[in-house]
Design a protein around this nucleic acid. Structure first.
Lengths: 249, 249
DNA sequence: CGATCGCTTGATGTTGATCAAGTGCGGTGG
DNA sequence: CCACCGCACTTGATCAACATCAAGCGATCG
């Protein structure tokens, strides 16, 4: 981790509030408490581990910029990516109550993250019990996404899997204002996407081509455009219920 | 749900305490609070839904006897089972903070379950903040199991998938005293196992035969014996870290 | 300006799906 | 107590989706 500590920022807390507010209604009092939560900013290069399996972190990280992934390796060395996280997410919030990491978390693009000390979070939650519920709810939505991904990988073919993942990313990124006209930055290689949905990288390439041919996606190097939202939703059997957003899209 | 309400029981609360205590150290005070939690017992036949996608339950259910599964259907009608739950588990604890069910839960054998009203749970948690942490932790372990299952389905072949699932069930059942000499009741059809690990029922049958041939399992109608625990663990790449048990097996 | 990385393309191989026809066990009813 | 029925499981044959291997291409970056 090539970390360059910065000074505490305004916008980190604001982003956290914005994200939390999409899943749980926050009072002004609670927003104020969140604004006062100390956050230490760090920049991290692409492809670095933020935290590793087996570690016992005293902090959780808030993504401010870039994408990260949660992953595990099988004995044969194959990688499964269990989750992708985008700005506003706290990929290892679970470590607040699960001492030993059962996963690793890595950046898949250049990232800025903010570290939240567990002691600070716990103190805040003591004073504001509804914030406990809000953060608990956030971890429950993570679990809901895992469930949907199990359905995706277990039962759908590769075409639907890719379509579903793209639908989910659009909705999640839109919630934090990172989508313009059904287009967004997607700093993820086909190999990473392959490890995410359980197919080979070669087959991701072929599947992308099929989606392009059907007018469901248009891609440039790091950006993706979804010209036919209804068509993509249907292809991916996508229903955003499982994201539990307050203002359901 | 062919429900026949029974009188409040002693053992339901005791089972809940026993299970929680395997993942979180409980004080006598907290155990007392759990003993006082009202639990309404209900018997449910095989193959009935306990709660369905889209519902907004005011209660969660504690499994006392039998197995249940968490599932979703794909548009094509294929079923993915995302979780199996055994006595001591609370399969829909998430509904405490996620109003709308994003999954359905069904019995896969004759079950006795106990219903816990959300208001009662919340009141108990207010008075005993460490119990909030304990229950939160329980939902985090559910999420950890989802992650491991993603790795299982996404990266391992059918032989390893079955082996892994059997290893997990042994450990989880042992924690609640339902294993004798590496043998336990397994009231699950091969079709259900197929929907759990994302392969076809026919292939489950063949995989079982391969495991039998290698001396890793012996089965009767409803019971399974694991004669070569080390061998099975290796076949399933099983490491129980992700179950976050206090007395790691 | 070469090197590297990510993507593409084609050829071949394998796992596991699907279809279809049995088999055996347990439970049910006569 | 026995005969029957149904369901779970088994077995064999064929097929499809996707993996793997290998080579080439194009853009980005030092």
């Amino acid at each position: 981790m090539t970390a360059s500590p910065l000074s505490p920022s305004l916008s980190a807390n604001a982003l956290m509030i914005r994200k939390l507010d999409t899943i749980f209604p926050l009072s002004n009092d609670e927003k104020q408490a969140l604004m006062e939560l100390p956050i230490q900013l760090v920049k991290i290069d692409t492809g670095k581990d933020i935290v590793r399996l087996g570690e016992r972190p005293q902090q959780s990280c808030l993504i401010l910029k870039g994408f990260t992934c949660v992953y595990k390796l099988s004995v044969g060395g194959k990688r499964q990516i269990m989750a992708l996280h985008v700005p506003g997410d706290i990929p290892d919030l679970q470590s607040l109550h699960l001492e030993v990491m059962d996963i690793s978390i890595a950046t898949i693009s250049a990232c800025t993250v903010g570290f939240l000390q567990h002691v600070d979070i716990l103190r805040m939650c003591e004073r504001h019990p509804r914030l406990t519920a809000a953060l608990w709810r956030e971890t429950l939505i993570d679990a809901s996404i895992y469930r949907e991904w199990l359905l995706n990988i277990g039962q759908r073919d590769s075409y639907a899997r890719v379509a579903h993942l793209l639908c989910e990313l659009l909705i999640r990124l839109r919630a934090v204002g990172l989508v313009e006209n059904h287009a967004f930055d997607l700093p993820i290689t086909q190999e990473e996407m392959a490890d995410t949905i359980g197919i080979s990288a070669v087959h991701v390439s072929r599947t992308f081509q099929a989606l392009r041919a059907n007018g469901l996606i248009e891609t440039t190097r790091t950006r993706i455009y979804l010209p036919d939202w209804e068509g993509l939703k249907e292809a991916g059997e996508f229903d955003p219920l499982y994201l539990h957003l307050r203002n359901a899209p």
